[in-house]
Amino acid sequence: MKIFNQERFDRLPDAFLFDTDNTLYAYSTAHAAAQQAIKDKVVETFSIAPNEFDSAYAEARQQVKMRLKATAASHSRLLYLQRMLEIMGLGSQVLLALDFEHTYWRTFLSNAVLFDDVKELLDDIRLLGIPMAIVTDLTAEIQFRKVLYLGLDRYFDYIVTSEEAGFDKPHMAPFQIALEKLRPRGDRIWMIGDNPVTDIRGGRERIHAVTLQKIHHDTPLGTDENAPDAAFSEFRELRHLIAKLGDAM
């Protein structure tokens, strides 16, 4: 565990905020498997070349993102797939779009595996009696399904999605709503996430959170204004830190 601002770790926090995707589980492997599954299905259904799917999907995604900017719906696979079918000249094809979306999420969920020691960490925090919330982008339904699938619902007191907040992180709204729900006793909040811009900079600038970045091979350490107060690659390191601060109390 690398602690860059030692003075911010003199005591346990009053509340924990966690990002989900790529923080609590490896997003990229689940996404890659899911993306491949819809690609295989689309290629097989329409007898098209894989690169035709790639280009149509990429274009659809770009259009949706550009139109919806930083909102929950801008991440919607259903909208990407609907637009992809339209770009392919097939109209909206409601049934197919839904079917492909189901395929994506089913494959995604079956490939989503929590990082080691996540549940143990959450259990440690539960025993310390510190409230916890998930602050995550994307739509509520799929994030709720992920939380259920990964068995995290029993640990977290609240969840805030960007669909609920109206904006993605690093906008103030999701952080603010989380704190309103949690009502922490003090102002020492730990924000734990992987993204140096949305989670780390967002957490620090919006709610003055102590920021901890989860590092792995595809998430580089944030620098300058995106630099976290601490970084770790294994959740057991965070458990040790919390145990140490807990013992010192």
């Binding site: 089913r106 969920l109 709720f144 399904r145 259920l148 699938y149």
Partner: peptide
């Protein structure tokens, strides 16, 4: 029930 609601919708 969790799985029927959460996974199977």
């Amino acid at each position: 029930t969790r799985v029927l609601v959460g996974v199977c919708g």
